[in-house]
Amino acid sequence: MTALASERMTQIEQLRRDRPRSRFLRWSLSAFVLLLVLSLFSGEFGFEQVFSPRRLQNLENFLTETLPPPIRRGEGLAAGLAWASDILMSPKGFPALGKTLAISILSILLAFFVAILLTPPGSRSLACPEPYLPGLASAKGVRSFLWNVCLHFCRFFYVFLRAIPEYIWAFLLIQMFGFSAWPAILALAIHNSGILGKLFSETVENLPPESTIALRGIGAGRAQLFWFSLFPTGLSRFLVYFFYRWETCIRESTVLGMLGIVSLGYYINDAQATINTPEMLFLIFLGSGLVLLGDLFSALIRYLVRHAN
């Protein structure tokens, strides 16, 4: 090895040794990977049971039952299509899809509303004694104890809202409000306002502060700073998150029907309970069609919003 090459090697070795390292990061990630691997071998999940004869028998029954009855009886594709369109036209089809969609829309609108109201007190840059003061406007600004309490209370409230899954919220709310669409709407709104609140607050903290500082300079208060500068500047990013969460709302609102609310899930659960496998699969298929359409629409809007300016 020539002298030059070996010098190069030492330099590379030095670079490798100087790379940023964090003990916390390394231990945490190792523990995480260990947890994932050990969980599979915890003895909780018996792989050997999967192919027991009883299960294979189950599977065989299931597979023979999946085809729609007209096709199973050999009446041809036209009869199968008639079967599908019958389901589509019944309350299980389009009306259920419409209700699923309506629930998702109302819940995300409600979540947006709640989240945007929680955003100013939950943003580090506004929840401080002198927000956006010209000449003093670093990201942290001046802190005070009471404003810190307000900030951390909001942050904790976000976690509280989003920690409990929608399904469990809905399960609890149904006992309070009965089987109208409200429990589903409220459950989705509670969970998503926690998520949107967190995302919105982080967005507000990272917005370019110039226009807000200018507004503060001419004597605007907190509410004015938020509604006339931060909100309009951040709106396109808020909308991106809004549509991203709306996708998930559609997905979840189909499922919440399984608790007895009339969205698609209600009929899917019904079909499962009456062992009507073909109908169950068809309705699940319909639901995933709705989710796909929602995804496409929201991706389109997000693209338009991103490229608006």
């Binding site: 299931f62 399904y167 997905r251 499922v255 499962q272 062992i275 169950m280 699940i284 639901g287």
Partner: peptide, 17 residues
Amino acid sequence: RSVHELFWALIFLAAFG
């Protein structure tokens, strides 16, 4: 992704028990 995990659970419950 488009089929929710609980629906997958329903399908698997029907298929495998």
